[in-house]
Every structure is written in C-alpha cells, then in structure tokens.
Design a protein around this nucleic acid. Structure first.
Lengths: 231, 231
DNA sequence: TAGTGGTCTAGACCACATA
DNA sequence: ATGTGGTCTAGACCACTAT
C-alpha cells in the first residue's frame, strides 16, 4: 500500500476502515471538514480522496446529505481493450494480419438500422484475420461509413490493419460495446480454423463521431480467449 | 454537451479540437499554464479537465514532457456489474432465486491453487439459480472461504442470495474478473434448462480481502445474454 | 434555512524527466 | 538546469437538498 500523497493516505485509511466494518453499507461518513481536521489537511485534499472512492462505486456522495457507503454497489470493472497488435506483442508473440475482404457494397438491413441511415447506402465491408505466432487469433468483420471517412478507400490495409488506422484517423466521441458468447458461424469457423458451432467470445463495437456512425465491428476471438480485468 | 463548469468547458473544448484533428496522435498539447491563460482560469482547473481526459486513455501526461495525444489508445470500457437482483428488476422483470446447494466440503484441487491454501481445507460450496420472470437467468457456482467469513454458515440463503449477502458483509479490497465463452456443462445446462454444449457467456470472479481470498464465483448466463457498456 | 459537497482561485512547493 | 505536471493550501462562493 504505497502512501505517498495525503489524498492516497486518506483513501487507503478509509478503505481500511470500511473493510474493518467501521462504517456499514448505508452509513454516513464524516463530512469533508471533519476528515480535514482529522488528517490535518485542506478540504480539497479530502475531496479528492473521497471522490476517488466514489468513482469506484464504493461511496455515494450528495450535497447536503453527505457521503454514504453504497448499499448495493454496482461493481465497476474497467476493461482495457488494446489494439490487437499490441495485445499479441505484449504476450511476446509475433503479430501478423491478413486482409480477407475490402469492398464497397450496399449495407444489409441489419446494418442500416444500426448505422441509422436509409437503405441503399453503400459502405466499406472489411474483413481481416489477426494472427498470433502465425495462428488465427481474432477474426474481424467490420463495416465502415465511407460518408464520414472518405479517405479510407485509399488506404492500403495489407500494411496496416483497419483497427490501427481508424484509431489514428477517426477519433470517436462515443462508442457502444457488447460482449456475448456465440456459436462460431461458418465464416468465422473457416477463418479461425475451428469447427462451426464452437463457442467463441464475441465483442461487438459501434463508434460514433458526434451523431455520425463511423464503424461497426464484430470481433470473433479464438476459443479459449478470455477478457481479463481487475476490480 | 452540457457545459456548466469551467473544467467541463475545457474538457469539451479539447475533445472537439481533438476530433477536428487540431492535434494528432503523438502531438504535444499546450501546457496547463497556456490553457489557463486561454480560458482565463486557474491552473488547477485545467489540471482537472486534462486529468479527466487522461483517465479515459485519450491523453497521456508526464512531468516535464507535457501532455500528448495517445498514439495507440488502450480503449477503456467501464463495465457495470450490478447485483443480479437489481439487474433483473431494472428490466422490469420479477426476480427470484433458488438455492441448489450450500455445503461445507473439501476444496477440489483447482480451487486450492486459486485460493492459495493448502490441500484438505474445507470451504462452503454454494450453488444457486437466479430467475427472471420465473425463467432461468443465471446459474451461480461459488466457493466461499469460511476461514475469512465464519458467520456465513449461519446465513439463510433461501431468503437472501449469497451475492447480496457478500456485497453487504464482505467488503473486498481487490478482485479479478475474467469473461469467456464456453459450452454449457452438464450441470449448467441442467439448471439453465438448455442443451449441454450450448455456447454461454461465463464470468468468473475472485475477490480478496487484503491477502485472504473471500470467494470465487463462476456465473453462467442464459443464452443470448450480453454484457453492455459505453466507451 | 442550514449544512453538505462541487467548484474555483492564487499561490506555493515538489518530483520527475528531458535536454 | 529547467519546465512540466502532481499535489497541497486557505479561503471563497455556489448548488443542491434535507429539515
């Protein structure tokens, strides 16, 4: 428990007292002024420490009513979703990727509703396979809105993955993420080199720039893959 | 874009300029002092705004070298993992749960390593089914460390779920979370009322109080379940 | 109405990494 | 050596809400 700063000392102290059940779920903690006196510091310092704890969902803070221990804490896990190349290289493996498809075509029905655009609009359909030590790791099936990203049709995706290009060229303002389990489709099974119907982890992500959809991607991970996080 | 506070105004302003590509990945932003002059505010206010952006992974800050636009941002998604009862009730459904097993037994080998305890130690093996509108929603298979939580053997888990009891009585200091896709085991399939081998989403969680493991739980969600989040 | 947290200031000192 | 962000202070005013 490294305690270098005053606000971290306060944070850790409060955490310890919570684990020792000095304050139970629903209880009100002392006010910022009281903590400031206890620790001999400014109120702003206490404010930072308590807000830090509130951001993890352990405490709830409201003006006038004070700081309370959350009764049914919504546990918040921060999942880090790195660029695939980095994720693979971080494990000490060799990264490579193969472009499978990159064509302009009419959006299918399930995509027009997702992109909230009229039917008949064309978009870039992009499929690629990411490999770890030359073995299939992740199959990517992506639609890119060419109205928002016209430059993308000139990009050579055999040298850089769409994943990385978009990260560098399409700053998003908003995104939605969905994690599910599915039976591998024929397409996914073929490219991942597994049997159709095998359970695989799917991550679907839509990103928006203001009100314009930029891209929708469905990531199919090879069997055995886990998304890990600490609480 | 509600702009009430100075620090939120600054944050939104910087976000807009980033999306307009005024600063590209790798670029250095103006210093806090320069921003403070631009917005006519104190440096602490700029500090709060930029730290807010850095916490989302968009910016990277280092003493002396300044604030840079992250080159390969590790996208951070915050997943909210509510207590199951709340999650079901929030959808307007009726929550109920059934206790399936709650017995003290020797830890199997894969759990002794996970709990980092010697072999032969006993723990509470707890299985329960959570229902939404009287249909199977989530099957919970849990081991609880009775050395750390001796009171738990007296609890009546037919009235309160282990999930909720632990949230209120076992504050954890640390936790690990793992999300994966798996074929439903015979046990899971039986209780969820599905065919064995069906792909289901699995969440495994271990929580620790300081150095002592409190509980390990494997949550098996019914087919079709999605974990959602915004970026 | 009163007490709480939210925000902001002007200034200060410090830790750190770069040049 | 220098300039950056990290932290802290003492004080202030404000917004919200329980009483």
């Amino acid at each position: 428990m490294p305690e270098i700063n005053t606000w971290q000392i306060i944070k850790n102290n409060v955490l310890r007292r919570l684990s020792e059940r000095q304050w139970l779920p629903g209880d009100t903690l002392p006010s910022e002024m009281e903590f400031a006196r206890e620790f001999g510091c400014a109120r702003a310092t206490v404010n930072k420490a308590l807000n830090e704890l509130a951001s993890t969902g352990i405490l709830e803070r409201k003006r006038k009513s004070g700081t309370r221990v959350t009764i049914n804490p919504v546990r918040k896990a921060t999942m880090s979703i790195p660029v695939t190349r980095q994720e693979i290289q971080a494990r000490g493996c060799t990264y490579s990727h193969v472009l499978i498809e990159n064509t302009l075509k009419r959006l299918p029905a399930h995509m027009t509703s997702r992109f909230n655009v009229p039917g008949g609009v064309k978009a870039l359909h992009h499929k690629a396979l990411h490999l770890s030590d030359h073995e299939a790791f992740l199959y990517e099936d992506r639609w890119i809105n060419t109205i928002v990203m016209p430059d993308i049709q000139e990009v050579d995706f055999t040298t850089i993955s769409a994943n990385e290009w978009l990260v560098g060229h399409a700053p998003y303002s908003r995104g939605e993420l969905s994690i599910l389990s599915a039976a591998a489709s024929a397409d996914e099974a073929l490219h991942l080199g597994i049997d159709e119907g095998r359970p695989i982890l799917i991550v679907e992500r839509t990103t928006w720039s203001d009100t314009q959809p930029i891209t929708f991607v469905r990531l199919a991970y090879r069997p055995g893959y886990r998304l890990n996080s600490t609480l």
